[in-house]
Nucleic acid binder design. Structure first.
Lengths: 353, 353
DNA sequence: TTGAAAGCGCTAACAC
DNA sequence: GTGTTAGCGCTTTCAA
């Protein structure tokens, strides 16, 4: 069934059918109704390719999930408690606004070509990029596309240094720095002074932010930053487990009394290490994670963690990209969402002895 | 940059460019190379809409995630530990085969129109439907589309009764019945006789299968099926929590010694109820769940559970649908994947007293 | 082995 | 207001 068939049945021309479909004002109510009736009766759907070819939008946005370092991580990105809800909320919002979402994973630099391809092939009107790395090279390629795009969790400073604050480009971030600072301050408030930090990957914006917040919160409170207390966890549970175990076994006399982990996944590794060495949480060691993954609240003791407003971010991303697709954007924009410290059982006031 | 531009630069006609792009055999190596060079130099990508309009495939498959009963459940489908890895694996496989994936959620009967629309608008070559319900009405609509489609976890008997074993249609299931039977037999093997069951939604295939397996395993082992021991959990943690609490408080003298829960989510509810009532797992009560969600292994005590081969199913779905899109299918097909019982700490041999 | 030309289903500029 | 017509960028007969 094509628009011509509808036209014939309704006794009008294809142009009129097109005008009805596209809600043009210059068609009288009577004609509109007549045409709509036929359309509905026959479940007619205009062919998207033909519309796109004739200059219309595709009403499709691309979501590219970049996860290069995790290419060989069995615990892939959708298992990842950050991306799953992000994808969920994004689909919800986009679908509710009548948009389709094309999702593509990017597990290698090569895969990244898919982003460009999806545009050049005319598959999508705009795109969103979210991932475990925030590669400026990629950001530049995207910016050069001159097409609506949203970057999730990118470093504004780097973006500005590279003059990537272009039109049709937007950045949506969470306030990781603020969240991490809250976590460290909370521990300090409980009397802790020897606070260890399990670091994430430094090639991610959030990894760097959380690290910087730890350092500066310690320093601004006059606390010593002990290098032995800074563990390289790479955001991976396994690494954190090994590192925490090593630290607890080594620093026997002067163990830290608290750990701030740059994500919950690594906090789980820390918990395992503690269990193995018989170190009690929170009695002997307080622990705070980051991300507030689902398990956090279910653990025993439940894990304090910094919650990111993933849903709000995804919703904002959907609205923002669709807005840009439909109206274009005359400016660069940036949104930054606040975090929330979820205080649970894994932290305790330090008892002086 | 259009094919005509490439043609001019290469000194050939658009037809020849098209032949090169589509890998036709009747173009000499020399010409092919010449054209390819220009294409690569200019990062030319043929417009998908134009190709589709001219009769080619879109190389896009649709993934429809149906979750009608969960429309208002804050803990939506992607949080769902079943769908997240399914989506992950499907994307992986499809993308690796050069296919794009269009994902759409279906939260209402109305939304279901999107499935039909996606086809009629020419957005996708084939589709996969996965969800929390297995509605025969929907299956029929899909079958009538006469287009490559895969149904995940549908009841074959119902499908056959409705004569929906059509060409271009395939079903991929997990052996829930077998898995549930294994779980119950395991408990029986540990000496349990009073085994309670937390039931899932009966409007799902897996919900029914797990229920039936429980009943028949009990009966075939000569054990009494006590109606008070069959709890309506609806696959929801909250319901399970309430029901288990009610049962434990009521059936005080003759408490069950074991519980088989139709999913892990509900097992978590059971754990909470036990904790509250001071019932020790596994000392006083053994517990097995279903799905083997990520938390299961991390709980203390860790939760025994039946693992579904989600990844394998998703991979099979991707391969199968792409195969159907490319070659069509002259028959109906069905694949059924085995489950695996993960024995952990939440079950104990019954000590006779 | 190659090119010319028709056509896929739609939109939009133009004419009436 | 409405119809006619010329593309949009590609594939694919058909003819050479």
């Amino acid at each position: 069934m094509r628009s011509e068939d509808i036209a014939k049945l309704a006794g009008v021309s294809r142009s009129t059918v097109s005008r009805v479909i596209n809600n043009y004002s210059n068609v009288p109510d009577k004609t509109r109704k007549k045409v709509m009736k036929i359309i509905e009766e026959h479940h007619y759907e205009p062919n998207t390719s033909a519309r796109a070819l004739a200059g219309k939008k595709t009403n499709t946005i691309g979501l590219f999930v970049v996860s290069i370092t995790e290419k060989h991580n069995p615990n892939r990105i959708y298992q990842n408690n950050y991306f799953a809800p992000f994808v969920d909320a994004l689909l919800d919002s986009a679908n509710a606004m009548g948009y389709y979402v094309l999702i593509h994973t990017v597990y290698s630099e090569d895969d990244f070509q898919k982003v460009r391809q999806a545009f050049q092939q005319g598959r999508i009107d705009g795109g969103i990029i979210v991932g475990t790395e925030n590669n400026m090279e990629m950001a530049r390629i995207i910016a050069d596309l001159q097409v609506p795009f949203i970057l999730i969790d990118y470093d504004m400073r780097e973006l500005l240094e590279n003059r990537l604050d272009r039109n049709n480009l937007a950045v949506i971030n969470s306030k990781d720095y603020e969240g991490a600072a809250k976590a460290v301050e909370h521990l300090i408030g409980l009397g802790h002074q020897r606070i260890a930090f399990i670091s994430g990957r430094q090639n991610t914006y959030s990894g760097r932010q959380r690290y910087e917040a730890y350092i500066s919160s310690m320093e601004s409170n006059g606390l010593e930053v002990n290098k032995d207390y800074i563990l390289q966890g790479e955001f991976l549970k396994m690494n954190a487990y090994e590192e925490v175990k090593r630290m607890l076994m080594m620093a026997d006399g002067v163990r830290p009394t608290a750990i701030f982990s740059a994500n919950d996944e690594m906090a789980l590794g820390a918990i395992e290490a503690c269990k193995e060495l018989g170190v009690s949480i929170p009695n002997e060691l307080s622990l705070i994670g980051f991300d507030d993954i689902q398990v956090a609240a279910q653990l025993n003791p439940s894990l304090s963690s910094v919650r990111l407003p993933i849903f709000e971010m995804a919703k904002a991303a959907a609205h923002s990209i669709i807005d840009m697709c439909e109206k274009g954007s005359e400016s660069f924009s940036m949104l930054s969402f606040p975090t929330q410290l979820m205080v649970r059982e894994s932290c305790q006031r330090l008892v002086k002895d």
